[in-house]
Write a protein that binds this DNA or RNA. Structure first.
Lengths: 151, 151
DNA sequence: CTGGAAGCTAAACAAAGGTTCAAGTCAAGC
DNA sequence: GCTTGACTTGAACCTTTGTTTAGCTTCCAG
């Protein structure tokens, strides 16, 4: 007796990968980025408790909303550290994304409305078209690369 | 007399950069990617006709909608090659983005609705939660990096 | 005609989010 | 006890969208 039930058995990276749909390399990457943590066996292999499934799920769901990993990590740090997060803990964390999502939707809707106008007029004027020059900035966006692609 | 009016004078990269709000390095990059073309002077410097302003404006507007450059390039190839594109040409090209935008907005709205549900239940279950597993795919997304960040 | 500003190219670097590979270690079934 | 499959690490590589830098050339005003 005293055998570990499937409920309490820890997961290896491979098992977690299969159950979460996230590749082992991505899981190790998340760990390097401080998004998840793992216990190590005496032979230095990773072992995860059941909590980890929900945590990984939260990361993926957040990514789908379009949040960068660094931001997700910041939100995860507000979770309780030594206690298993409760339903309320997760709900509180999720609320942040709700606002993010609303903002993104509003922005896209504005773009769409401008675009509808512009399809009618075909203008695309640098100076006048709200779609082309939406914030009246014209340049000076600052240096550094920006990624415009959504998955 | 016979002086070039400002209406017909060609633009240098620097001038185009200033008028379009896109840096010279970005303009050269767009040319390498086949998004724009330039005439060359005998001294190998780029010169642009007035058409280019609208073309660059279209590229920037499309980027704001979230379209990757490769896709923009493909759409630009359907423009007439030797004739200056008309208002209708540009409007036809823009119509594609309208559909794209609508699709994106719908997707975000679905996400938001799921998220609202999930905040209530706090579930984030790998198997059941629509937010976590929205397409019932669970893995097998294919290889290659994907960028999730919006500007 | 000359000096400085602007242009040219190719190559390196950046950041995000990973994948792939090489070389080696661990765990478990037979 | 041994073999095989899963795991470990670090480093290199990938894509996208550009910027920066080095080393030269060209253009324009005085």
């Amino acid at each position: 007796m005293a055998q570990l039930s499937w409920k309490t058995k820890e997961l290896t990276v491979g098992e977690l990968a299969e159950r979460s749909g996230v590749s082992p390399s991505a899981l190790r990457f998340y760990e390097r980025q401080g998004l998840i943590r793992s216990r190590r066996t005496p032979g230095n292999q990773r072992r995860y408790g059941r909590d980890i499934l929900r945590r990984v799920a939260f990361v993926r769901a957040s990514q789908r909303v379009g949040i960068p990993l660094a931001t997700i990590r910041d939100v995860l740090t507000v979770l309780p550290d030594e206690r298993t997060p409760t339903r309320e803990d997760w709900a509180r964390a999720s609320t942040r994304w709700r606002e993010e999502l609303d903002a993104r939707i509003r922005r896209l809707e504005q773009l769409r409305d401008h675009l509808t106008d512009c399809i009618g007029c075909g203008c695309l004027s640098i100076d006048r078209c709200a779609l082309v020059n939406p914030y009246d900035t014209l340049g000076e966006q600052g240096a550094g690369p920006r990624c415009h692609l959504e998955p």
